[in-house]
Nucleic acid binder design. Structure first.
Length: 857
RNA sequence: GGAUUCUUAGCUCAGUUGGUUAGAGCAUCUGCCUUACAAGCAGGAGGUCGUAGGUUCGAGUCCCACAGAGUCCACCA
């Protein structure tokens, strides 16, 4: 027997291990249709945060739902080596031990990374287990395992040969702390306080100068021109003349270029082709020299004379001082402007000229756009609007910088010998040297949906069976990092989109709407919440509390309310189990009105739940189940069943409906549903995980009963209000007439807790005041009269309440009459709706008559 | 500059082909320890659905404008 209270700690203990041992998580039943989900691989040394908990819950819901519904489900787990993130952690750790990465050397450093990975890699698996994720661990992958590395090499070489990957000298975003190039996506722009420094650039051979404004004065060492707009009347005559770059005293030309904006700043721009992407373009147009003035750590190099060796910001300070001393600084104008920071290290990104590998995006992006036009092969986004976002991204289409000057990652399969270049995994022979760089983590992630399934392996059976995948779920924050890239790589190498449906969820925010972050200290640990309320509550709360694509404000009170809901389910189960111990089989032949009613309601619920599950509208599923279970099943049906509990049909109904409830809840709350399922006296499977998902059963739908019982329920509610409003005591007397059926009369008496002692005798009645509750429609009518002693105060109260009722009724009748006299409504609205309105109007009129009668007394 | 989301009860949010009197949790008020559950039960109060127009027989829902809040992309000498 169940305890009186739900204890999530007991319930969630050991179940996961048991499921895993039984092999329920494994795919492979080829008699069934496959259903595939690939888990977005978290950073191998990372920690599960609430966003992950949300993400894995969504996927587990789909995995469990489809598994129960007869599919061969593969939910494939894996982790990502997370190049920069992991490498920077290992560097930091070594540093604390007084070890420098470069002194240690590449091989030993990689060993340290592997050690780190092994040490922390298990954590994430424990967290999946806490959350109840039904992952097939026999297929677990890592972005540095054979599956991934082979695919990455194959893809790289093929793209290189097709000219889709090229090496180029360009301005890229440089992270001076991690000492690597970054892609545009890895740069985060933040509003930063800075200044326009106005500097004098003297025109050669004159005492006149140009006022050049810059936010990065230290780059003047790399200036090789000054540009003005050719249409700018102020300066156009100067084009062709030269200016002298201050401090370095270099003579550089004044050029005319549209890049110089007449309205911006002073209209004069210094051109530093090696340190600014726009200037780089200008430099190309005018054949300007590119002078690199910094090293890879953003310290000034030998080009800067006495500033050589200084950090960029230190150099800026000292340079400004010197400019001031030499009267070359016109002024400083403080501004707030947007500056790029590295996503991982949070240092200011430096635009930096270097040689890097790029993916040529034009053709790939076009293919992606075309694929989305194809109804049968497109990715369906949930919510839909993300498709537009993806398309826009594809239309912008700038090349993707994929080389990283790191060691932890997949090394670029390119070999050099003198001037020769070869693409190959193995060394082409003696004297060949491999490219030192590794690939962007996201390059391997982009292949993840097919690399994990053995696309590059000899045995392609998994790929053939489970690709393309069915469901992808992820936060919108990695739409461009990942979803976009998976799409074009999938299309390019498999000819198909890697997933059919892509569900985007939002971010988890703190209760005040701010982002959860370490610096604000407002983060919530999912594991703490699991300990406090259970994984079941956390999963249900996270997945049913917001609409797709929207952020979720984490509210512990709501999580606690979810716990209460589970406690309610627990107790409803407890009641059911207490009353059906002796049942041997479910027999739904001999059913009462309320049995038929709950079965009908239940089947409606099954239908709506399935519909919404298939559309990933989990918040609707949540609302539907919550209302059905709490309001219909617990508050009404269980109460009604108490008076009929010895009936075989009622016992069967209780068990049948409870079983269905547990099954529909199972994807959301796997642990508690399994706990209760195991105690059911009649069940079809050894675990709820592998039982069948409920189906709509037409033969268990009794529409007439639905209508009847809804009316009865209405009547009971009304009678209850009357009882209370008029302060009727338990010992009052009543007479009760119900025209339909003796059973219904009994049920109503029971539900209203009216007992034989309350029956009134005629002679008594005469001396008592009375109130009555009437209900009359075409399938059910009843009349309940309470007789009781009443004070003048009570009587006044009743009058007041009747007048109020009258007022409400009259306004409703007026509204409905207006509606029904509207020909447009009568002609256009659905017939049933109009008919319903008519019935209601009739009822309301009858009710009003009764009230008027009572008011006359 | 472009795109996009949000604005519904005191608070946090649902409301998906337009159709009863707009729902829930928490908080609040009234009455109940009724033998599944007081972390509960039975009720009550609380909303002119951001503002102003339009389409429609009918708008929280569709369209337009405006206001406020947020996010993404581009630009940022």
């Amino acid at each position: 027997m169940l305890d009186t209270k739900y204890n999530h700690l007991d319930v969630e203990k050991d179940k996961y291990e048991n499921w895993k041992e039984k092999g329920y998580f494994k795919c492979g039943d080829t008699s069934k249709e496959p259903f595939t989900i690939i888990l977005p691989p978290p950073n191998v040394t990372g920690k599960l945060h609430l966003g992950h908990a949300w993400d894995v819950s969504l996927q587990d819901i789909m995995a469990r739902y489809k598994r129960m519904d007869g599919y061969d489900v593969l939910w494939l787990p894996g982790t990502d080596h997370a190049a920069i993130a992991t490498e920077s952690k290992v560097v930091k750790k070594l540093k604390s031990e007084g070890i420098n990465k470069y002194d240690l050397g590449r091989e030993k450093f990689l060993e340290a990374c592997w050690d780190w990975t092994r040490e922390y890699g298990g954590n994430i698996r424990k967290e999946w287990a806490h959350m109840g994720c039904s992952l097939d661990y026999s297929k677990e992958r890592f972005t540095l395992d054979e599956y991934s590395v082979k695919a990455v090499n194959k893809v790289f070489i093929e793209m290189y040969k097709k000219g889709l990957i090229y090496k180029g000298k360009r301005i890229i975003n440089w992270d001076p702390e991690a000492k690597t190039a970054l892609s545009n996506e890895e740069v985060i722009y933040k509003d930063t306080k800075g200044a326009f420094y106005h500097i004098k650039y003297f025109i050669e051979g004159t005492n006149d100068y140009l006022d050049v404004a810059t936010t990065r004065p230290e780059t003047l060492f790399g200036d090789t021109a000054v540009a003005v707009n050719p249409k700018d009347d102020r300066y156009k005559d100067l084009i062709g003349k030269n200016v002298i770059v201050p401090i370095v005293d270099r003579v550089v030309p004044i050029i005319g270029d549209i890049h110089a904006d007449i309205d911006k700043g002073t209209g004069v721009v210094k051109i530093t082709p090696a340190h600014d992407p726009n200037d780089f373009e200008v430099g190309n147009r005018h054949n300007l020299e590119r002078i690199v003035i910094m090293d890879e750590t953003a310290h000034m190099n030998e080009e800067t004379g006495k500033y050589n060796g200084l950090d960029r910001f230190e150099c800026r300070d000292k340079l400004l001082k010197e400019l001031e001393e030499k009267d070359l600084l016109i002024g400083i104008e403080e501004i707030t402007h947007s500056v790029g920071y590295s996503e991982r290290t949070d240092v200011m990104v430096e635009p930096y000229l270097s040689e890097q590998w790029f993916v040529k995006m034009e053709g790939l992006a076009k293919d992606l756009i075309n694929m989305q036009q194809d109804k049968d092969n497109k990715v369906n986004f949930y919510p839909k609007r993300y498709e537009k976002t993806i398309i826009q991204k594809a239309e912008e289409c700038y090349d993707w910088c994929i080389s990283r000057q790191l060691w932890w990652g997949i090394r670029i399969p390119i070999w050099y010998k003198n001037d020769e270049i070869k693409a190959s995994v193995e060394s082409p022979g003696e004297g060949w040297v491999q490219d030192k760089d590794v690939l962007d983590t996201w390059f391997s992630s982009a292949l993840w949906p097919f690399s994990t399934l053995g696309w590059a392996m000899e045995d392609k059976s998994l790929f053939e069976r489970y690709y393309p995948t069915n469901f992808m779920s992820t936060g919108y924050d990695i739409l461009f990092f990942w979803v976009y890239r998976m799409m074009f790589q999938g299309e390019q190498f498999t000819g198909k989109n890697p997933f059919k449906d892509c569900y985007m969820h939002g971010l988890i925010r703190a209760k005040d709407g701010r982002k959860m972050s370490k610096s604000l200290g407002n983060g919530v640990e999912p594991i703490e919440m699991v300990e406090k309320y259970g994984a079941d509550a956390l999963r249900f709360y996270l997945t049913t509390s917001s609409a797709p694509g929207l952020d979720l404000r984490f509210d512990e009170e709501k999580l606690s309310a979810t716990w209460n809901f589970i406690n309610k389910i627990w107790n409803a189960s407890r009641f059911t189990l207490m009353n059906i111990e002796d049942i041997k089989e479910i027999n739904l032949d001999n059913l009462s009105f309320s049995d038929k009613w709950i079965l009908t309601k239940y089947n409606d619920t099954v239908k709506i739940v399935r519909k919404n599950m298939d559309k990933y509208e989990f918040q609707n599923v949540g609302t539907e189940l919550y209302n059905f279970i709490w309001s219909d099943f617990c508050d009404f049906y269980i109460e009604a069943s108490k008076f009929d509990i010895d009936n075989e049909g009622t016992k069967s109904t209780l068990l049948y409906v409870l079983t269905g409830i547990l099954k529909m809840l199972h994807p959301f709350m796997p642990f508690v549903t399994e706990e209760i399922y195991q105690m059911l006296p009649v069940k079809s499977a050894e675990s709820i995980m592998i039982s069948n998902y409920p189906k709509y059963e037409k033969k268990l739908v009794f529409s007439d009963t639905l209508e009847l019982m809804n009316s009865i329920r209405d009547f009971i509610t009304k009678a209850r209000i009357s009882k209370k409003d008029n302060n009727i005591k338990k010992d009052c007397k009543y007479t009760f007439r119900c025209s339909t059926d003796q059973k219904i009369e009994n049920l109503i008496c029971d539900m209203l807790k009216l007992t034989k002692e309350n029956i009134a005798y005629q002679e008594e009645i005469d001396t008592f005041e009375s109130i009555s509750v009437d209900y009359d429609n075409h399938i059910f009518n009843a009349n309940l009269v309470f007789y009781f002693e009443v004070s003048s105060e009570d009587k006044a109260k009743e009058q007041e309440s009747l007048l109020k009722q009258k007022e409400v009724l009259e306004s409703q009748i007026a509204r409905r009459e207006k509606l029904l006299s509207n020909q447009g409504y009568v002609n256009n609205a659905p017939k049933e709706l109009v008919e319903e309105e008519r019935t209601k109007l009739d009822n309301e009129k009858k009710e009003l008559e009764l009230i008027n009668l009572k008011l006359k007394d």
